[in-house]
């Protein structure tokens, strides 16, 4: 009895880690996502730099622009996890081998890793190229990126699962994700602005509360509902 309970808990995790390592291996082999996303970031950043050439961007505005880059980078990269399974026709095999919850958790882990790596690079490039973006409260900025990236990965992984079954996937993805992600984006932009303004950590507490509850709510709902999306 006890053994079965332990198995019930660890089985999805085991399956999830298998899905995660499968995605990671195929990514490391081709470096498709990371390469194209890096180029996407370079292109977006250079458009912003060209259009603001010579003008000094206010700190508030620079916090917003940073999240515009992150949002669209996520929108162009994160849908791949599920869309690729449909395109290669491998989703049936996955359905046979692992539980739906394992698939979601594995993909979520991979997408989180991807967006963390990507965000580190984006922030690094952004700080180097936009002189007015100076983080004065690193602690607020760190927690914002930590929670914001996870929330972004969590919501967009689930939406990716939905749109992978639809036609016109590319245009549908940001359309469906934006309203779901907006509470996250509003509080994340506000917290980033606070970190640039050099606010005390207590001022960003309201934003952190929203971010934490958002992450919990979205992740829970996506785990509960994933069965209906995956098996149809």
């Amino acid at each position: 009895m006890k053994l079965r309970l332990v198995w019930a808990i660890f089985c999805p995790v085991k399956g999830a880690s298998a899905v995660f390592s499968k995605d990671l291996n195929s990514e490391l082999r081709t470096r498709y996502a990371l390469n194209s996303l890096l180029m996407f970031v370079v292109v977006t950043l250079s458009i912003i730099l060209f259009s603001t050439a010579g003008e000094s961007v206010s700190p508030t505005l620079s916090a917003g622009i940073l999240w515009i880059i992150i949002f669209f980078a996520a929108m162009s990269g994160l849908s791949r996890s599920f869309v690729a399974e449909e395109e290669r026709g491998t989703s049936m095999t996955l359905q046979l081998w692992v539980k739906p919850s394992s698939v979601l958790l594995g993909k979520l882990a991979f997408n989180s890793l991807l967006i963390y790596v990507l965000n580190v690079l984006i922030v690094f490039a952004y700080i180097l190229t936009v002189p007015s973006f100076i983080v004065q409260s690193p602690l607020i900025f760190f927690f914002t990126m930590l929670l914001g990236s996870f929330g972004l990965a969590s919501a967009s992984t689930f939406i990716a699962a939905i749109i992978s079954k639809a036609n016109s996937k590319g245009t549908l993805y940001p359309v469906l994700s934006f309203p779901i992600l907006l509470p996250l984006l509003v509080s994340v932009i506000d917290a980033t602005r606070l970190s640039v303004d050099g606010a005390a950590i207590g001022e960003a507490l309201a934003d952190f509360k929203i971010l934490i509850s958002y992450c919990v709510v979205v992740t829970t709902v996506s785990i509960v509902l994933f069965d209906f999306v995956w098996r149809d």
């Binding site: 939905i162 749109i163 036609n167 709510v217």
Partner: peptide, 29 residues
């Protein structure tokens, strides 16, 4: 977004279940 999702799904059952899922996710946020 809900209506554009519905119009992008051709198979009836799939349209029904996926749009139901989307409306639940939207309603929690």
């Amino acid at each position: 977004a809900y209506f554009s999702l519905r119009s992008a799904l051709e198979i009836e059952e799939r349209r029904a279940s996926l749009s139901a899922v989307y409306s639940i996710v939207a309603f929690v946020t």
